[in-house]
């Protein structure tokens, strides 16, 4: 007979991580479901994933590059913008999908057990598909502008990992709060829009005066975006103190998000 499962009141479930491992197939299947549904439901399907970053890039290039005449770190402005759009879209898609994921899967949560954290995590996998599509658009752009990436590009997965850490921390926090406070979903688009303005997506973070850089790095996305530009563009300098600060905050955010989620998770089925 296998090990006995013990459920006890007021005790953190010790086998949570064992469960996570046991339910990895469900995690993959849910991700597969979300991807299928996403590309089945919309007529334009994948073309939407292409159009959205492309249009955003064009608007930002015109507004920040042409009208505001921001510095472009010596690369064509579209590439500067697109290098930042990659992590930004990955982040905002994960957070907006993941933030509502628990509520939209309410019937499952109230009827069957599984580690609830796999639901918001799934949204990251779906955003990853869009990320891959965006990467190919960027490659086309780089060929078009004849911009050759340097050896630094091999570090891109590391920065993608940092983007994932940042996105998951916030997603866990928001999705858990969303269960308890339903009008949080109206706040969510605002948070994301706000994030776009305070993050260096349409401009280079070098425009921020040197003495404010560290404070600016309190936004963990600053570190992520700077990292992406450092790896893709190839000749931009990196402001390391800011990056390390950003990265540390991202990890802290994930720890907090995970902790809050674990604590609130126990009453999800009762309040959802």
């Amino acid at each position: 007979m296998r090990a006995r499962l013990v459920i006890e009141a007021d005790r953190v479930n010790r086998q949570y991580f064992k469960d996570l491992l046991a339910y990895r197939e469900l995690f993959l299947l849910l991700a597969w479901r979300d991807i299928l549904v996403r590309y089945k439901q919309t007529v334009i399907g994948i073309s939407w994933s292409v159009l959205r970053p492309l249009l955003t890039m064009i608007v930002f290039t015109i507004v920040f590059g042409r009208l505001a005449k921001m510095p472009s770190e010596g690369v064509p402005y579209p590439i500067l913008v697109f290098a930042a759009l990659l992590p930004w879209q990955f982040f905002s898609n994960t957070v907006s999908e993941g933030g509502n994921s628990l509520v939209s899967n309410a019937s499952m949560i109230s009827k069957v057990y599984f580690p609830r954290i796999i639901v918001p995590t799934t949204s990251m996998i779906v955003s990853l598909i869009d990320f891959v599509i965006s990467i190919s658009i960027l490659s086309v752009l780089m060929v078009w502008y004849q911009h050759v990436p340097t050896w630094r590009v091999v570090f891109l997965p590391l920065f993608l990992g940092l983007a994932a850490i940042t996105a998951l921390g916030i997603t866990y926090l928001i999705s858990a709060l969303n269960v308890k406070y339903r009008d949080f979903r109206h706040v969510l688009p605002f948070i994301i829009q706000f994030g776009l303005y305070i993050s260096p997506v349409g401009f280079s973070s070098t425009v921020v005066p040197e003495k404010w850089r560290l404070i600016y790095s309190m936004n963990p996305l600053v570190g992520v975006i700077d990292g992406f530009r450092w790896a893709i563009i190839g000749n931009t300098p990196m402001y390391w103190p800011g990056f390390i600060f950003s990265a540390g905050l991202a990890v802290l955010l994930l720890a907090i998000g995970f902790g809050v989620f674990r604590r609130m998770e126990r009453e999800f089925a009762d309040v959802i």
Binding site: I7, A9, D10, V37, V112, Y113
Partner: peptide
């Protein structure tokens, strides 16, 4: 699905619960 407020439960086997038919069915699939 939900945690108890008091007490202790020991379970010695794989559990499947069927509180609803078609949990997680997605209409588009």
């Amino acid at each position: 699905i939900t945690e108890p407020t008091t007490g202790r439960i020991e379970i010695g086997g794989r559990i499947a619960s069927l509180l609803e038919v078609g949990t997680g069915f997605h209409p588009e699939l």
